[in-house]
Amino acid sequence: MPKIHVTTTVNGGETEFLCEAHHTLLSVLRDTLGLTGTKEGCGSGDCGACSVNMNGRVVCACLVLAPEAEGATIETVEGLAGEAGMHPVQRAFIETAALQCGFCTPGFMVAAKDLLARNPDPSETEIRYWLAGNLCRCTGYDKIVRAVQKAAREPGRHART
């Protein structure tokens, strides 16, 4: 069966790839495009390690079929830092030690950035529920919540969301 040709925008650049109908966006990002920052923890949409922003919404890349990326705008963890340096969420996670093993961290980066773009001053409860789709087994979430609160207080955050 011929492969499907997909044209999409990833981290601001137009990207083309070939895939089969059953391939996931996650497998294409990781194995075809070499964007291994997005992680696979479960393959069933339960852990959030593969969170990417697709057309302005956080999705689990393991639940998106690769052909659905046609014409889409996708941002992965690799797209968060730019010429101005790391995104405030990235800096806050380092500064508050909100990661231990770091495997779930890319998913938290993508989800937390989206939260702050929608809600610049989230309460603790809002942070916890927004991040409910992202599993972390190392931290108990305490320092993750603090990191998002710290990033929310950062001046200049809006310029990068």
Partner: peptide
């Protein structure tokens, strides 16, 4: 830290 928040760390 930077490697782990930017996706550069290789697992």
């Amino acid at each position: 830290g930077a490697d782990k928040v930017t996706g550069r760390a290789r697992f």
